[in-house]
Simulated scan of single mutants.
Amino acid sequence: MSRHRDEYRQWPFLNQEEFELACAFFDQRYVRASLGPTRQIFKIRSRRTLTTGNSYIEILRLLQLPEDEDELSLALSKLGNGGDGLNSGSGMEIDITEEDADEEALRSHTSSETNSKGKQEPPGYSLYSHQPYVTYEIHLHPTYSMPTLWFMLHDLPMGEPSFDVDAVYRYLVPPEYKSRLRAAGVTGGVSAAPHPITDIPAFFIHPCQTKEAMESFGCPIKDYLMVWIGLVGGCVGLWIPSEMARDEKEDQ
């Protein structure tokens, strides 16, 4: 345990360099994992801000699979063909070809655009044939020096606002977490604030209690985000495919 903690300047906190390395290892896990069909509905990519060049992780997940197979095929095809995403024209498209081409696909079309005022726009996504989806982002918190999980809902059924805490509890929070999260309030539960890049209102899990949760673990930096998501992500429906952990162990 102490050997792993020597990899950090101050466990369990991360400085920017350590966070960059943790993001790179996490992205590498996803690229190398044998995910099969899961890769079509669960996307992970490492991104960088245009203003500072700092890394962050972006995760996109379809909330529910269409029951009709043809509808799913249409949804997945639209995902790679542009469309009316959050910021159409941002150049972000997601490939749905065979897994052998995943690494190249995951490295392309990943830059955000800037608007006429120089402010960075949110990444644009093609529509999943109007299938609801969620985007998660992992950013390093400048004050707490811990990863922070941001998330937003998209393309909810007509009449349902995406930026609504009740929708978060309805679509993302598993039943066993609902009462605990509501009791946590602003500190430790689901909070809302301007997104760290776009300034658009978004939800996040407050990082104030992350330190205590991580302190009991001793993990190398290559496993940091895997452990952290295991502690933080489940309360808002974020789980990492088991293949990302299993393949890593087999390679050792």
Results as ranks from 00 to 15, higher is better:
His139Lys: 05
Leu140Cys: 05
Leu140Glu: 02
His141Glu: 12
His141Ser: 14
Pro142Ile: 08
Pro142Val: 08
Thr143Gln: 15
Thr143Arg: 15
Tyr144Met: 11
Tyr144Trp: 13
Tyr144Ile: 04
Ser145Gly: 02
Ser145Tyr: 08
Ser145Arg: 13
Met146Ala: 12
Met146Asn: 05
Pro147Ala: 03
Leu149Met: 08
Trp150Gln: 01
Phe151Asn: 01
Met152Ala: 15
Met152Thr: 12
Leu153Thr: 00
Asp155His: 11
Leu156Tyr: 06
Pro161Leu: 04
Ser162Gly: 13
Ser162Tyr: 05
Phe163Tyr: 10
Asp164Ala: 07
Val165Met: 12
Asp166Met: 11
Asp166His: 14
Asp166Thr: 13
Tyr169Lys: 04
Arg170Leu: 09
Tyr171Asn: 08
Leu172Tyr: 00
Pro174Arg: 05
Pro174Gln: 05
Pro174Asn: 06
Pro174Ser: 08
Glu176Gln: 14
Glu176His: 10
Glu176Tyr: 04
Lys178Met: 14
Lys178Asn: 10
Lys178Ser: 14
Ser179Val: 10
Arg180Asn: 13
Arg180Ala: 15
Arg180Leu: 15
Leu181Phe: 03
Arg182Met: 06
Arg182Val: 05
Ala183His: 11
Ala184Arg: 12
Ala184Asp: 08
Gly185Gln: 00
Thr187His: 14
Thr187Tyr: 13
Gly188Ile: 03
Gly188Met: 04
Gly189Leu: 03
Gly189Ser: 07
